[in-house]
Amino acid sequence: MNDNRSLIIIKVSKWMAPFIFLYGLYVVLYGHLSPGGGFPGGVIIAASFILILLARGRRAALKKLPYGVAKELDAIGALMFLTVAMLGFIFSGLFFANFLQQYLPGETRRWFNAGTIVINNIAIGIKVCGAIFVILFFLSVLRISGEGGIDFRSIERK
């Protein structure tokens, strides 16, 4: 399977992927101070895994981000988002209330001043990363498994 892959592509993708991942993390974490946010950051993080998937094959990508973990990330992100919303409802009586910013107002223009927006950004980033990776991973598996669709049990067993 790895026979026809170019050495240059493998090496360059190995060097590029961590930096893309780091940039995605920056975009997620500083989304409330600079352009960015959860959606593009999550997609950039997923793109770093997709680069590995396209350049070095399915096995290398699954070593970095196993399929089960990616599936869980999708659910964890959604649950985290809802949990923040419910905590806002509990603490200040409104769904999606920014309770952290009300009780712990930080210095303006610092990292920890936006309350729940940071947490929501992280949740959305996790969720989008998991979702995009799962979709592209299945499309790459479909080519190998052929016509009949994907046998999910064989993937989860690996």
Partner: peptide, 17 residues
């Protein structure tokens, strides 16, 4: 935009099927 990319992904999955 994010909805459009998930819509595109779903449409591609359907057409591949």
């Amino acid at each position: 935009i994010v909805i459009s990319v998930s819509l595109t992904a779903l449409l591609i999955v359907i057409s591949l099927r």
